[in-house]
Amino acid sequence: MELVQEIAQAVSDLDNEKAESLVNDSLAEGVDAKLVLDGVMVGITQVGHRYETGEYYMLELMQAGVLGKKLIKEITPHLPKVEGVKPAKVVIGSTKGDNHDIGKNLIITQLQVSGYEVFDLGVDVPSITFVNKAKELEADIIGMSAFMSTTMSHFSEVINHLKDIGVRDQYKIIVGGGTTDTAFAESIGADGTATDAVEVVKLCHRLIAESEAVIA
């Protein structure tokens, strides 16, 4: 447990050198990779808390994302293979006409370090692309971001299309950005919205818990 806390502290403090050294040394010494991963994940969670309390800003959240992804890449080959378990998949993008992407990009990083397989469709994404990619990749969650009222209206276009082809229930749909709030999300038939990247991860965890998908 001491090792878990030590790795977590290094990640939480964004001490890249120490975190990488602890992870690599532990793996080389044959320490259980699950314990090492626990340390990284606890550290990432702590960064989220520090962001929520205003101690950290977006830069630190981004840096933690980059560090987390790097460490997880090191740890993954040492984890036992679990047959038949696939990570939850998220297809995400900014809707047609919308080029705003900071929030979306931050969410992608946070979801990736939290174990999701994320497919970034980019910005200015036609509604049909959300539908087709979600079908093609067998996504669990479709995430849509829009900053302007005229681009937010594409949310319902995607949702209605999914309904009309009879596959709405196969996906959890999250929307966000601009003036999107819970009341609006409910009114268009989305499954949820959140105010920042940390909250989006919590929302996805909750939605995935309601479905059969698994977070890696």
Binding site: K96, G97, M148, S149, T150, S153, H154
Partner: peptide
């Protein structure tokens, strides 16, 4: 910005905008 006109929402890049 107008929310909707007679139930029609403005959608960027379309006639409703």
């Amino acid at each position: 910005g107008i929310k909707s006109v007679d139930g029609i929402e403005p959608k960027a890049g379309t006639v409703t905008e």
